Simulated scan of single mutants.
Amino acid sequence: MKDYQTEGIIIRVRDYGEADRIVTILTSGYGKVQAIAKGCRKPKSRKRGLIQLFTHADFVLYRGRNLDTITQCEGKESFAGIRGDLDRMAYAAYLAEVLDGFAVSGEIQEDLFYLALVCLHLLTVEDPELVTRVFEVRIMRLLGYMPHLDDCVHCGSSLKGSQVAFSSSMGGGLCGICSSTDPEAAVCTLGTLNMLKQLSRWDLKRLRVLRLTAKMKREIGEIMQQYISQRIEKRIRSADFIQSLASVQNKGEFGEY
């Protein structure tokens, strides 16, 4: 059957030719789909406002040899609250890049789709950095990559003391003694590793009651970005943009030295 219908979220967009766009759609029933939206950039196209990054919609597609073709698109949510805020937009772009790295073409990944949808909705109303930290931990747990945090991944002893570390290559926490076994391990507090475990189980409806210090959010971000980059085997470019954006904002707040 050449035509098929699916619910999906656009996670990547690039212009093609004079009036078309090639998009990557994370779907509920077909995994990651690459498709072309012909003529969507024309001023009078009905798809013009829909074929955009983060659009959640019902799609009708025609299956092609290399690329499918979007024949119909009925929008469900555009996430305007994200588009109107540069910080939220940056974190949403990071989510989309991570999703693109893990989603598999032709494989049903409903849980991944719904995690993406929930987190995009949360990004419109909650602290975007906290939402992103929760997303990182949840996607690792969902895909079977949840790091080992109950004891030292190297020697098996309990994780204790004020300072421990996290090894992306070993896949878990290191005690103070073993932290030197991986020169690239990220030094962090025990509280950060405990929070990672808590975030993997936390009810997303109660996200706003979580209280993480700026240091804890920063440490979790550094740990998970390195860990995820190793799993998808590439650097996440949008993470660099988030860091540069934070640097500019800090200069604006505190002045240049």
Rank of each mutant, 00 (worst) to 15 (best):
F241L: 13
G161A: 01
G106E: 01
A90N: 09
S167I: 02
F54L: 06
R235N: 11
K42V: 04
L204K: 12
R65K: 15
S169R: 08
M224V: 01
Q109N: 03
R231S: 05
R237F: 11
V137Q: 10
Y257K: 14
Y91P: 12
R63F: 08
L196Q: 01
A96L: 07
S158E: 15
F113P: 07
S244D: 15
E97I: 00
E233G: 04
E129S: 11
D20A: 01
A246K: 15
E126M: 09
V104D: 10
S247P: 04
I236R: 07
A246Y: 14
L50H: 06
G161P: 04
K234I: 06
R133F: 03
A80H: 14
T213C: 06
G173V: 00
E77K: 12
A185H: 03
E222Y: 10
A96N: 06
M140H: 09
A214R: 09
Y62L: 15
Q72C: 05
A93Y: 07
K44L: 14
C119H: 15
E97F: 05
T181D: 13
S162N: 12
T69P: 06
Q249H: 11
L99I: 04
E256W: 14
L26Y: 08
L212Q: 00
M89F: 15
E74K: 13
D127F: 05
S180H: 12
N66E: 14
S78W: 06
T213K: 06
E7T: 08
C175L: 10
L199S: 05
S229V: 00
I22M: 06
M146N: 07
E77Q: 09
H121L: 12
R206I: 05
D151W: 07
R211W: 03
I70N: 02
T55I: 10
I220N: 03
G221R: 14
H121R: 15
G171R: 02
D111V: 04
K2E: 12
E129H: 13
T132C: 11
V248W: 09
S179I: 06
A37D: 02
V131A: 13
R237N: 12
Q5R: 15
K234N: 07
Q52D: 14
M140D: 10
I11Y: 04
T189K: 03
Y114Q: 06
L212G: 05
